[in-house]
Amino acid sequence: MDRYKEIADLHKAKENRIYNSFVSFICGGVMGFLAELIIECLMNWFKLSRTDSSIYMIVIFIFISCLFTSLGFFDKLVTKFKCGLIIPITGFAHSVMSSSLDAKNEGLIYGIGSNMFKLAGSVIVYGVVSAFILGLIRYLIGGV
């Protein structure tokens, strides 16, 4: 059994960690750059306030991510760029979109409706739990 493990380790596909980190740094950086660019374009062209245009920016990114996932080539991009696309809000939209696409055959209620937050539900649950506990601590300390 040990011999098997050694041979298996020899033939495992090697992941170049430095290359992966570099790719996700560049990809994440480009996403951040685009986000700021969209905000400044909206502020200059449509005379929106900074808060409004950042909300429009998030909606635009979610729209693009959902569109690309439903057309089928966002999965390939995610395997290529990994965390560069998972950490921004596009990863959240991608997980919702892909789990609801997978469950489409099971019908409207028990398929799409109940499976939509299969993967992304953990983000909302732990976000709300941690936000409540931390917010309560901050409130009790005082001076918000």
Binding site: E15, R17, N20, S21, S24, F25, I26, C27, G28, G29, V30, M31, G32, F33, A35, E36, K82, C83, G84, I86, I87, P88, G91, F92, L119, S122, V123
Partner: peptide, 27 residues
């Protein structure tokens, strides 16, 4: 923006590569 967003993604990728956590854990 480029530097900050890239840095966050870099940290996430390093956690993903060096530990057994899945993308769900990391988000």
């Amino acid at each position: 923006s480029f530097l900050f967003c890239g840095l966050i993604c870099l940290i996430g990728q390093m956690i993903l590569d060096n530990t057994k956590l899945t993308p769900g854990h990391i988000t």
